[in-house]
Design a protein around this nucleic acid. Structure first.
Lengths: 301, 301
DNA sequence: GGCGTCTCATCGGATTTTTCGATACTGTAA
DNA sequence: TTACAGTATCGAAAAATCCGATGAGACGCC
């Protein structure tokens, strides 16, 4: 098999995460895919790149040397992808971008820096707002563009939306929870547990929909708008929750572990995407930002 | 779809060849695969890279800019692939390499320069010899390694072989030949035509095998050890031949066109590979050369 | 202008690769 | 030794790729 960029991506992610399984979560794919990809790379090169251990993986000396090269390749690829847009690299102007809470913390952080580097002429004005505030601002012209949850977008007549990626929702459970014994958890079982409700970004509204659909009601013992709080409370055994992979991390702030289980019943994924006013043409900076994100997230284009 | 190295390879090949179909022949794949690959790339970038015309393709201004980037990526990839072998880059010594006629002209030419660049410490001594001379020299120690046709290797007890790639054999026909009307040509039809026999590299021995197998005898009107002569004679309409894609070019030295047709009956492919003496361990330069070619030709490692 | 010829694009089907989910294996720590 | 966290492996499903054949458009020749 020939060397592929996918293999390089997997290797870089695993090397940086220090764990193959964590790298898989971050890339929204399965652990076995990452394992296979890296194995293919090692076979191709005839060199062991990662040292596997009980706590995860660490790069071998050869791996470290190759990691540098791999990063150089990915940098060259990034360059090349943006190059044909090069004319527009000189785009200048203001981009008033609205984002919702989870998007700001778990998604935009990774991309704003790269965007600023690519388009130094664009002044990026980020505002964290609620869904309804964003929708209003888009329609009235207070915002040019928004990155938000596109699955339950209101006001479909006036707003255009484009989904950038989906993140799966799973049950979060503390270590040693009885429900961990099964590979899948039914919503009925979750309904019997104390539930920590996250109240940001329409999370509760979305949750309500799929709970209703199965005629169940979660026993909400605590509502918070802080993902960190949810993480800590789940880790401490105060309850369980259902949230997307995008915000999942295996450790709470206190260092306690959090587990994940797939639900037996299908639960809608969290869809993150762009939204803008239908009747207002995208400004040049907004168009550039849209193209930038599309490329970065590896969708067709 | 994400950007892939394959797409870049296809694009570079097409840009350099000036024709998608010619690029496909050079890469031993079908034209439609190259077309699809480049289309995927253009869709991904949202830019037209090639200007299609009746005589082939030419790069657009955007394509030219991207071509540079693509080459940079492939250079970085080549670097990375050889980097883990980096310790051995300092390998020094002499490599006495035997090659057969067609391999020398149509295969080695492309790779020797790159090898010399990667391993400046290795003195490459190339000798063009006949199959039997090479086999003798390998056994007696006059050669360290050989690149030759591995399909009909004699002396299998004493020689080890590793096939690097296969090239399909097809019928070569002059323009306006009646047999061109059908998409495939049967060996029986070819047997009725005057046949130009190439006498280098066991070509006639291999040919004999598959002709015998079908109980047919080609009407050899001319035998030559020069591929250029075969090309010119086929183009001039003096006869037809069956040779591998590796040595195929659509034009003769005189500028006349040569066509290709697949045979109805399966004809064995031409297998090019390495060979060395079984009882003699590979020298360090030989090992390095083997790894180098394996990587360059994109096989598993 | 009509026709043959060359080239690239498109399509269906076969093949190969990639992915996922489940399970087995392995090293570490109690 | 057991429990556990993490990786490797396996079979089946899904997706991408490839091929061969056919279609469509441009050029040159009569």
């Amino acid at each position: 098999m020939a060397l592929t960029l996918r293999q390089l991506r997997y290797f870089i992610a695993a090397a940086e995460a220090g764990q193959i399984s964590q790298a898989a979560v971050e890339m929204n794919i399965s652990q076995s895919a990452v394992t296979a990809g890296i194995q293919g790379l090692e076979a191709r090169l005839g060199v062991q790149l990662l040292q596997r251990g009980a706590q995860g993986v660490s790069v071998t000396p050869e791996g470290a040397r190759f990691l540098g090269r791999a990063r150089a390749i990915m940098a060259a690829v990034d360059d090349a992808e943006r190059s044909p847009l090069g004319e527009e690299r000189s785009v200048t102007g203001r981009l008033r971008l609205g984002v919702t809470y989870t998007v700001a913390g778990y998604f935009m952080a990774r991309h704003t820096a790269a965007f600023r580097r690519s388009y130094p002429g664009v002044t990026l004005e980020l505002s964290e707002l609620s869904r309804s505030a964003i929708e209003n601002a888009l329609v009235t012209g207070g915002l040019d563009l928004a990155v938000m949850l596109t699955s339950n977008l209101g006001n479909a007549e006036e707003l255009e939306a484009e989904t950038l990626f989906r993140s799966r929702r799973r049950v979060w459970l503390p270590s040693e929870h009885p429900l961990l014994s099964a590979p899948e958890v039914s919503l009925r079982d979750v309904a019997r547990e104390p539930y920590i409700m996250l109240t940001v970004d329409e999370a509760s509204r979305t949750a309500g929909r799929y709970w209703d659909q199965h005629g169940l009601v979660p026993q909400v013992v605590f509502s918070t708008s802080s993902v960190e709080a949810v993480r800590s409370m789940v880790a401490a055994g105060m309850g369980v929750t259902i949230l997307s992979d995008m915000v999942y991390r295996p450790w709470s702030l206190e260092g306690q572990r959090i587990e994940q289980r797939t639900t037996q019943e299908p639960v809608p994924s969290m869809d993150v995407g762009l939204s803008w006013a239908r009747n207002r043409p995208l400004t040049a900076p907004a168009q550039v930002f849209r193209a930038f994100l599309s490329l970065t997230l590896g969708r067709g284009g």
